[in-house]
Design a protein around this nucleic acid. Structure first.
Length: 203
DNA sequence: CCCTGATTCGC
DNA sequence: GCGAATCAGG
């Protein structure tokens, strides 16, 4: 596989989104994460915007024997390229976790829900139809949720909110999340549904 | 041990 | 330019 325009495009896009090299490599296919990283460097877009796991490792490591040149910082990202690329595949986030199960305390009627800002949090809307198995699974895993706080959220912890943000009864699942997904397996099950499955599932 | 990105260097 | 091997870190 070679770095075609489209592939580089995807690379740039995903890298810009903070996707990891391995994820990008997986998405592109035919390349390893090393190849992706190598390309990223060659393209001169090393540092990303979002928080990275090792974004700070830009320090020079004089280990072998070669000071090498100073890393150039791309102050001018070159000319803009008018290329509209929809590229909308992949599953769509399902709009709506359930705010029940582990939520003993109900919201004091006129109490408005306040979602703590900071990181991408899933919406907490109304009840909806979710596959029974998935729901059961969620209920079960929520029992053993780690109940982590918003500050403990990482790329590898399930960010599924449980409870009411306006009360003490609020925490995040915190179980190991699927790589690339914001949730653990069980919550991914209810958060992401194939369009086919979610489309007109009740009738 | 899993993962991450960074760098080197033969091709 | 490419990317495997290697390195460094969480």
């Amino acid at each position: 596989m070679s770095w075609t325009d489209e592939r580089v495009d995807v690379l740039k896009k995903m890298w810009g989104e903070g996707q990891s090299a391995s994820q990008i490599a997986k998405e592109l296919g035919g390349v390893t994460r090393n190849a992706v990283i190598g390309k990223v460097h060659r393209l001169g877009l090393s540092n990303r915007a979002g928080s990275g796991t090792t974004a700070k490792t830009a320090a020079p490591k004089a280990k072998p024997a070669a000071p090498a040149a100073v890393k150039a910082k791309p102050a001018t990202p070159a000319a803009p390229k008018a290329k509209a690329k929809p590229a909308a595949k992949e599953e769509e986030p399902y709009t709506g976790p359930k705010t029940e199960s582990a939520t003993p305390k109900a919201v004091p009627h006129n109490r408005r829900q306040i979602i703590p800002a900071g990181q991408p949090l899933p919406p907490q809307p109304s009840t909806n139809e979710i596959p029974a198995e998935a729901l059961a699974k969620v209920n079960e895993i929520e029992k053993k949720a780690k109940k982590i706080s918003v500050m403990d959220l990482t790329e590898k912890t399930c960010k599924w909110p449980i409870g009411d943000p306006a009360t003490e009864e609020f925490w995040f699942c915190g179980l190991p999340s699927q790589t690339g997904k914001p949730y653990c397996e069980a919550h991914v099950g209810v958060a992401f549904q194939p369009m086919s499955a979610r489309r007109d599932r009740r009738r």
